[in-house]
């Protein structure tokens, strides 16, 4: 895996939002949602991004999808810098990069049936048409654990877990290479989460997909990710292989975050490590390599 080529490269990405404006519309206060983030995602791997709400993890995902124009920095996809591209030039990338979001209730148009929902992106990107399209959609449905008979049904006829399967089928319909998964399982029932995670892993193996997996459920992120980045206050504070990060966290925030995971074992004594930003002296320190493939923003 280490020799695999880098598919996505993020360099010093910044995304600032105007928090307050004066009467002339000039920005007086800036919210630095993402403030200088650099990392790479290798072809075929799952890169996990964790952090608390407001840490900027979803904003990074949206920048990679070019749902946001970023303030500064570069995002290279397969060697091509995305921010410079116009709508037309961006089109092929909009096919190659797909997304799955948290809420399967709001991300599917309620007025479209399954065939239309999954077929729409195929139309847009000219992947297939007519009866070939119908067959392709039916095949996809089976791949995500649904049935051919579901083609003419509407989203409200499905449970949350099934809707998330539909979202996944829709994302995969245009044969993407890279999928940004933003909290794809957090709205699902506990007993259904494992089904979807297993399916994401199977599809990755079958289609050679690369995932950016954004989530706050740390135990699931560890399970699915090859490498993990920890975000805090708009910056990455630590990046390492999953096991290395969980076994040997170096940044005090990572340590606090991992120690706060409630372990499903009544015998496991919780040793909490508190995190106090105000007494942390390493504010603003850049990420540096502290071990092979292990980066931490510590002095």
């Amino acid at each position: 895996m280490n020799n695999a080529k880098t598919l996505v490269e993020v360099r010093d990405l910044k995304k600032h939002f105007a928090k307050e404006k004066d009467v002339w519309g000039r920005t007086t206060q800036v919210l630095k949602a993402v403030d200088g983030v650099s990392f790479g995602i290798r072809k075929g791997e799952t890169f996990g991004l964790v952090g608390e709400s407001g840490s900027g993890k979803s904003t990074v995902g949206r920048c990679l999808l070019r749902l946001y124009d970023y303030t500064a920095g570069e995002v290279y996809y397969d060697g091509q810098e995305l921010s410079k591209l116009g709508d037309q030039e961006l089109r092929p990338f909009r096919r190659r990069i797909q997304s799955i979001f948290q809420d399967p209730y709001s991300s599917l148009n309620p007025g479209m049936n399954v065939l239309e929902l999954i077929g729409e992106p195929m139309d847009i990107h000219g992947v297939s048409t007519g009866s070939a399209r119908r067959d392709a959609v039916a095949e996809l449905l089976i791949k995500v654990g649904l049935k051919k008979e579901h083609l003419s049904r509407y989203p409200h006829e499905f449970s949350g877990g099934q809707r998330q399967r539909l979202s996944i089928a829709r994302a995969l319909s245009v044969r993407p290479e890279f999928v940004v998964c933003d909290e794809p399982i957090s709205a699902l029932d506990v007993s259904v989460q494992a089904q979807v995670v297993n399916m994401l892993e199977d599809l990755q193996a079958e289609f050679g997909l690369t995932y950016l997996f954004i989530a706050h459920d740390l135990s699931m992120v560890r399970h699915i990710s090859d490498r993990i980045g920890v975000m805090y206050g708009g910056r990455l504070v630590e990046v390492a292989d999953s096991d290395e990060l969980y076994d040997n966290p170096l940044h005090p925030y990572t340590q606090a975050l991992l120690s706060a995971i409630p372990v499903p074992d009544p015998g496991a004594a919780a040793k909490r490590i508190a995190w106090d930003r105000s007494s942390w002296s390493g504010e603003g320190v850049a990420l540096r390599e502290v071990g092979p493939g292990h980066f931490a923003a510590i002095p």
């Binding site: 877990g161 506990v190 259904v192 989460q193 494992a194 089904q195 399970h223 096991d243 995971i261 496991a268």
Partner: peptide, 19 residues
């Protein structure tokens, strides 16, 4: 169906099938 702490990274989850 929940990942075990310290379990092998790619140990497959055992889901409850169905809804």
């Amino acid at each position: 169906s929940v990942p075990k702490r310290g379990g092998g990274l790619r140990e497959r989850l055992v889901p409850i099938e169905g809804t």
